[in-house]
Computed example of a mutant assay.
Amino acid sequence: MTKKLKVELQNSGFKTNSFNLKACYTDPTAGLNIVNAELFKQITASRPNLANSIVNDMPNYGQVAGIPLELGINNLDQGLYVLEPYQEDKLYNLDDKLSDNIALSDNQSDLSTFTQPFTTDDLVDTAFNNRSPKKVDQSVVDRFNELYQLANASDADYYKLEEQYLDVFAAIDYLTFISAINDVDGITKNITYISKAGSKWVLMPYDLDMTWNTLYNGAIMSIDTNIEDLLNSYQQRLLLTIYNHRQDVIDRYKELRQNILSTNNITNLFNGWLTKVGSAAFENDDALWGDITIPGGTHRHPVNVADFDIMLKQRLANVDHFLGLI
């Protein structure tokens, strides 16, 4: 085959030659990643500085999208999958052949806490995964160490360095979002740091299926976690330093609670997804794969919509309390 073609997926809005098919036995909704991504997309669209940010040129504002489907291979039923069309560097509108098109995702190591400067070896699918560029050279390291400088800046230097290196509105939205959705992994993992052609650094969430009340192994996660407690527990210096903007995070959360982070909007997003999947697809998938687990893990059976709505409402009420709104 010499010609690459795109496939247009009926009723999806997607036209692509590159996509993922995903299934996650730990996610009782099959759509935590997709719905949370849509939620952050909406938050991003309301961001004050969006027109001047590199995020404005990213497809879907740098967030995955997806549709549910029932997969068959050679007439063999494979159950429920989610198709996601956007891929790594393309998701962020980067050219991974260029050293100044940078997207580095945290890989949850000791270096995730920004306690020491980085080397080339740290940024090549080790402490951080290099989504872009393909070849990490010293110029990439020097740029990424700007964040190290920021994380370890003195009070006198911090705001000067922040103005120089950081997309502050994106960082405030990041902290606000992970707090709301109970994204425990969003502190020392599942963060992508992005800069293009010398731009300020953007913090971007990804891999959002361990959120709300869902753990990586299928167990129920507590919805009583407080972002401030987690930041202090993990001692991630960069996020702790950015949390100097605590009042800005509170103000942004308060603003978003009136619309995008309202209980009604989030409930409607999840209920819309669950309706799109349909009870028959959930039941069929559970019949096919209901025994799939990992050692010590739990297979999550399809979500009870009423119970899930209650959980969403309680989590948001908890965050209201943590941030002093009630």
Results as ranks from 00 to 15, higher is better:
310 I>P: 01
56 N>Q: 11
151 A>P: 11
218 G>Q: 02
16 T>N: 07
180 A>V: 15
15 K>M: 11
71 L>I: 11
49 N>V: 05
197 A>F: 06
280 A>F: 14
190 N>C: 08
131 R>W: 10
46 S>I: 01
286 D>M: 15
164 Q>P: 08
189 K>Q: 15
56 N>E: 07
254 K>R: 09
82 V>I: 13
325 L>D: 15
129 N>G: 08
48 P>R: 02
49 N>Q: 15
12 S>I: 13
326 I>Q: 07
13 G>T: 11
211 T>V: 06
257 R>V: 01
132 S>H: 04
240 L>Q: 06
44 T>L: 03
138 Q>V: 09
203 L>V: 04
125 D>P: 14
250 I>A: 10
253 Y>P: 01
31 G>N: 09
226 N>D: 03
301 H>R: 05
135 K>E: 09
22 K>W: 10
152 N>V: 05
297 G>Y: 05
142 D>L: 08
254 K>F: 03
95 D>P: 00
96 D>K: 07
225 T>L: 02
130 N>W: 13
98 L>F: 06
292 I>K: 15
164 Q>R: 09
168 V>C: 11
50 L>W: 03
93 N>P: 07
208 L>Q: 06
184 V>W: 00
150 L>D: 12
81 Y>I: 08
307 D>E: 15
159 Y>H: 13
188 T>D: 01
324 G>C: 04
19 F>Q: 09
22 K>Y: 04
283 E>K: 12
290 G>C: 05
97 K>P: 11
15 K>L: 07
181 I>T: 04
149 Q>T: 12
9 L>A: 12
324 G>D: 07
215 L>A: 13
304 N>M: 11
133 P>W: 12
301 H>G: 14
51 A>M: 09
26 T>S: 10
173 D>A: 13
317 A>R: 12
279 S>T: 15
214 T>S: 05
274 L>M: 05
133 P>R: 12
90 K>S: 05
73 I>R: 02
273 W>S: 00
39 L>R: 00
313 K>D: 02
64 V>C: 09
235 Q>C: 00
101 N>F: 01
299 H>F: 15
178 I>T: 06
288 L>P: 07
176 T>E: 00
311 M>I: 10
316 L>M: 13
83 L>R: 10
270 F>D: 00
149 Q>K: 01
175 L>V: 06
61 Y>F: 06
280 A>N: 10
219 A>N: 07
312 L>K: 06
221 M>K: 08
169 F>G: 02
9 L>D: 01
290 G>S: 14
114 F>T: 00
260 I>N: 03
54 I>E: 00
103 A>M: 05
169 F>V: 01
39 L>V: 13
210 M>Y: 05
229 D>Y: 00
276 K>P: 07
114 F>Y: 11
312 L>N: 02
271 N>W: 14
182 N>P: 09
134 K>D: 08
